[in-house]
Design a binder for these strands. Structure first.
Length: 230
DNA sequence: ATGCGGATCGCCT
DNA sequence: GGCGATCCGCATT
């Protein structure tokens, strides 16, 4: 309804940022997905992770590794990099201006098409229909791919900066004030095998007090709270 | 709230 | 041949 007013589609220059800058910039932006039947799905990005090139042992592009699979990480800023993980799930990344460095989208706050998202999630469940809280429909990197029907076949290498692309794009929400949120900086999830140094680096970012975040770091949140109250 | 085991397969060594 | 940038279901605290 009124949420459409003044929303602006992100363009090439918006994505042309370093991996770290893009990870923070994307918080609060709206991921829009148009399905083949015309259904419009929207979710606010509330959690991201940086995957750097070169030294980053947690990254698929570690040590300059470049294969057909991770090629999108080296493509122009705003390219979709989608890979399958654990044989059954997908993860969705957006490439940055730095070759080999991309941003993993870890969680969305569902805004539009919640019934469709719920159905997509339910279909993937083993047992029958479960009641999921709406805020939890996209609270994980693979959950958001299921809810929005994002697969490698679908959208790998899709260009988010292409104005003609009407299957997936990003929008700015003018009512979202980045100055009114607090961003939690903490460690990335699921990369223990990368070693302590890289597993502990604060390369995960999420909006404090948002219900759709995948995993909170209460320790860091507490420290932030003390800092804010000073 | 927290933790563990199983599912499942494309990609790289 | 082996390994995940995960999720789900069930068990235990």
């Amino acid at each position: 309804m009124s949420s459409k007013i003044n929303s602006r589609r992100l363009i090439k220059e918006d994505f042309n940022k370093s991996c770290g800058d893009l990870s923070l910039y994307l918080l609060g932006k709206i991921l829009v997905r148009k399905l083949e039947d015309g259904t419009l799905l929207k979710g606010r990005i509330v959690e991201t992770e940086s995957y750097l090139g070169g030294e980053d042992r947690g990254s698929h592009s570690y040590n300059g590794r470049r294969t057909t699979a991770n090629e999108p990480m080296y493509m122009s800023a705003g390219t979709c990099y989608i890979y399958m993980t654990y044989g059954m799930y997908y993860c969705f990344n957006i490439s940055s201006s730095e070759p080999g460095a991309a941003v993993l989208l870890r969680a969305l706050e569902p805004l539009c098409g919640l019934e469709t998202m719920e159905r997509m999630r339910d279909e993937k469940m083993k047992k029958g229909r479960r009641i999921l809280k709406f805020s939890k429909l996209c609270d994980g990197p693979s959950k958001l791919c299921i809810a929005m029907n994002i697969t490698k076949d679908n959208l790998n290498k899709a260009d988010l900066t292409d104005p003609q692309n009407n299957t997936i794009w990003l929008e700015d929400d003018p009512k979202f004030d980045s100055k009114k949120i607090t961003v939690v900086h903490t460690s990335r999830i699921g990369i223990a095998s990368a070693g302590k140094l890289w597993a502990s680096r604060p390369l995960r970012f999420y909006i404090l007090n948002n219900d759709s975040v995948s995993r909170r770091d209460k320790k860091v949140e507490k420290e932030l709270e003390l800092f804010i109250n000073d």
